[in-house]
Design a protein around this nucleic acid. Structure first.
Length: 428
RNA sequence: GGAUGGGUGGCUGAGUGGUUGAAAGCAGCGGUCUUGAAAACCGCCGUGUCGCAAGGCACCGGGGGUUCGAAUCCCUCCCCAUCCGCCA
């Protein structure tokens, strides 16, 4: 959520920023309803002040046994009028809130302006000298590798649940678990994150806090008989751990990590990535979340991104780091880096991590504040999140990058301790 | 699912329908004392919003009602705790 005061005081500046995302920006409706709100508020508060004055006076006179009929009379006309105004005020507050809730975050100045993913900027490759497509044989996509090895069963997924569900078996299931353990150990150990196991279901307010609601409800799974949504990412529960709280400056920055399963409707993705593990209704992900002071969030985004990159380096998976342009960024983000892993079986880079700084956008929605030492005033924290990294897609990358001519897959050295020393996955 | 008891400031916890935005304690901030620290003592100390300021207004789980006036009375919803039953 944007600062309402900022929109009011610098309307052109805000409109220009939002305009960088593309599309039309029309804040005139907002300004009109916000002006009306202020008008009603001033009028209401004037009457409220008078009411309080009269009430106090009545109390005082009554205890002094003085006559209060005149005050009673004034109250009888003021009362109903005030009740009306208060209802109007509440309604107008709802209108303004609703308008504000669907305005996206403003991009940072360092975010490149552009229309769509074609305008994203590739910042760096790893390894520096690209070795894409250097496999000495025709590489296969992971669904062929996985089926041949008997570790991915797409048909079983369809049978049990439907399209976009997959069953992992044997070394495949173990590989997934190994990836999770490897990533969590790296982040909690070397990178200093605190591990969290949050609920996988969350209420509407929590989804509002991170920006999934009210605008993107169609992307979420919900429960028929209970007021819960399945989380689309651990960003939702982790970030909301500071919702409605006033933190001490000494507690910042906070670094949290969690492995969770994530659930997405993929409503707008019909027909896209229908084969393989790339786009599933359910997938696992290790998430990284930072809660910082405003002045340190920009640097924190670099650090968080480096932590995600470190996962891929240790897994020996070639990748590139991309800075998303304004038109390709998510609703809550002010700046986003994507990590794209190289998939030789498909001959392309695919997103495996997305790291964003939302600045105070989510904090304002969820009222997450902190206080500096000795200060009276509270400030909104900054929140950041990133995948560190998506487990399903990491598994895809391991299979496609580790495949050999005979159909077996070499397991990255970093994962072997988590695989009981297994070095190669061979067909059963 | 059944039966009780609760939801008040960063935390714990008082609160008779009327100068109560709310006692007290803890935490925090400032000070006295001390070589320093602790202890003790004194003072300050809820959040948000409007305003240049003085100050105004709102907020005691959410919503509605009674009343001239509600943290306090009534209705309703939500949540939490405990006990019983069921269950991984």
């Amino acid at each position: 959520m944007l600062d309402i005061k900022l929109i009011r005081e610098k309307p052109e500046w805000v409109a220009e920023r939002l305009g960088r995302r593309g599309g039309k920006v029309d804040l005139s409706g907002f300004h009109a309803s916000e002006a009306k709100l202020r008008e009603i508020r001033v009028e209401t508060e004037k009457l409220q002040a008078r009411r309080n004055e009269i009430s106090t006076e009545i109390g005082r006179k009554k205890s002094a046994k003085e006559d209060v009929t005149g005050l009673f009379d004034e109250m009888k006309t003021l009362g109903p009028r005030l009740k009306e105004l208060e209802a109007e005020l509440r309604e107008q507050e709802r209108v303004v809130e609703a308008t504000l809730a669907v305005i996206p975050n403003m991009p940072m100045d360092s975010t490149p302006v552009g229309r769509d993913e074609r305008d994203n900027i590739v910042l760096r490759h790893w390894p520096e000298e690209q070795k894409n497509g250097t496999l000495p044989f025709q590489p296969k996509p992971h669904w062929e590798i996985g089926e041949k090895l008997g570790i991915l069963d797409f048909e079983a997924g369809v049978q049990l649940a439907g399209a976009r569900f997959t069953v992992l078996k044997g070394a495949g299931a173990r590989l997934s678990r190994a990836l999770i353990n490897f990533m969590l150990e790296l982040h909690t150990g070397t990178h200093g994150y605190t591990e969290i196991m949050p609920p996988l279901l969350a209420n509407a307010q929590t989804l509002f806090g991170t920006g999934q609601l009210p605008k993107f409800e169609e992307d979420l799974f919900s429960c028929r008989d209970n007021p819960w949504f399945l989380i689309p990412t651990a960003e939702v529960p982790l970030t909301n751990l500071v919702a409605d709280r006033i933190l001490d400056e000494k507690q910042l920055p906070m670094q949290m990590t969690a492995w969770t399963t994530c659930f997405r409707r993929e409503a707008g993705a019909a027909g896209k990535d229908t084969r393989g593990l790339i786009r599933q209704h359910q997938f696992d992900k290790v998430e990284l979340v930072w809660i910082t002071r405003p002045e340190e969030s920009e640097q924190a985004l670099e650090t968080l991104t480096a932590h995600a990159e470190e996962v891929l380096r240790r897994l020996e998976l070639p990748f590139r780091t991309v800075c998303l342009c304004t038109g390709d960024m998510g609703f809550s983000a002010a700046k986003t880096y994507d990590l794209e892993v190289w998939l030789p079986g498909q001959g392309c880079y695919r997103e495996i991590s997305s790291c964003s700084d939302t600045q105070s956008f989510q904090a304002r929605r969820m009222k997450a504040r902190f206080r500096r030492g000795g200060e009276k005033k509270t400030e909104f924290v900054h929140t950041l999140n990133g995948s560190g990294v998506a487990v399903g897609r990491a598994l895809v990358a391991v299979l496609e990058n580790g495949q050999q001519a005979d159909g077996s897959v070499v397991i990255p050295k970093a994962l072997r301790p988590y695989m009981g020393g297994m070095e190669v996955i061979t067909p059963v």
